[in-house]
Structure formats: C-alpha cells, structure tokens
Amino acid sequence: MDLGTIIWNTVALFLTLCIFSFLYKDNPFYKFAEHLVVGVSAGYFAIILYFNGFIPKVWEPVTQKGEWWYLLPTILGMMTWARFSKKWSWISRFAIAFYMGIAVGVAIPLEMQQRVIKQLHATMLPVHFTNIQGVWNLLIMLGVLCGLIYFFFSMGHKGVVGGAARLGIWILMIGFGAGFGLTVMGRISLLADRITEIHNWYLMVTKALWGF
C-alpha cells in the first residue's frame, strides 16, 4: 500500500465525517465540506465541458480540419451570453428559439409514443375473475382511471368524480409508499457503503502502521 493511497483515503474519510457531522447539528466542519464540494464541482464541470465539448467539437474541427461550419453553432451558443447584458439580451432569444425548436420537435412525437401510446396499449388488459391475473388487470385499470380522474381540472372533486379522485389519491399514496420504501433501501445502501469504506480505511491504516 503506497503512502499516496493512504493519504487520499484519509482525506476522503475526513470529508465523509465532516458531512456526517451535520446529523448532529450545523458546524464549521460541515460548512467547510459544503463549500469545498460547491467549488470543486463548479471547477470540475467547467474543465470537463472544455475538454469534452469545446476542444473536440469546436477547436479541433476548426483549427485542425478546417471544418469552419462548426463555428455556426458556436456563434449561436455564444449568443446566449448576451443574456448578461440588459441592452443585448434580446439576441439570446434566437439561440434559445433554435434550441427549443429542435428539442421540442424531436421530443414531442417520441414522448407521446413512448410515454402515452405504448403505455395506453399496455394498459388495455382483459379484465376477468377466472384467474388472479384478471384481477390484477382490474386493479391496474382502476388505478390508471382513478389517477387520471384525480388530475382532471375541469370539474370540481364532487360526487362520483370526487369519489373516484379520492380513490385515485389513495392509489397514488400507495405508489408513493412503495417509492419511499425503495428510497430507504437506496439511502441505507449509501450509508452501508460509507461505513464499509471507513472500516476498510481502518484495516488499511492498521496494516500499514502495525503490519496486521
């Protein structure tokens, strides 16, 4: 085990404990780690964009391959910076309109296809009581219908609509419960991973210092 690994692992451990200290209450160690992560992430993102975006997609094509047309989207991108000036902020709208136009054009048909039509097709299920699947299908149908009714804004939630909407919100809450359970699992995984890493650090340091 080299010294560098031990030092970096110790730094990681220290920062983990700084963040964990927040569980007790806000303190200077937490503040230090908080400000460090804000600064590091901003710097990291700027660098990664520069080396993975600007260099291979602007600098190299234009300067090395003479593909000057890469300058057109670059200019469009730079136009968005006009937002920082009150006088020239209108220029940025061209770039945003261009981006929005393409993004919406590509997204809407595919979103409709993948999130609505395919789901609609998958929900048209035979409902019967001859086996358990038929009953599950009925539950799925009821859930979808009542959920949709809850999100109906053209009518007040009164009478039959109100009843269905109430059932809809109950079904939503059951779904949220399942989601929350899975989240607890996820958060415990993260904690378990950190604790395991702390344990590994302890084993590593004791081995390095005392050889066991």
């Binding site: 609505v116 609609l120 929900t123 048209m124 299920l125 035979p126 409902v127 019967h128 299908n137 149908m141 979808v144 219908l145 949709l148 009714i149």
Partner: peptide, 13 residues
Amino acid sequence: IIIILILGALLET
C-alpha cells in the same frame, strides 16, 4: 384516454 381505456379493456375481455 379514459374512454379508450375502458373500451379497449372491454373488447380485450
């Protein structure tokens, strides 16, 4: 969509 779903499920049944 509600109408389509009810109709689709009935026909599937």
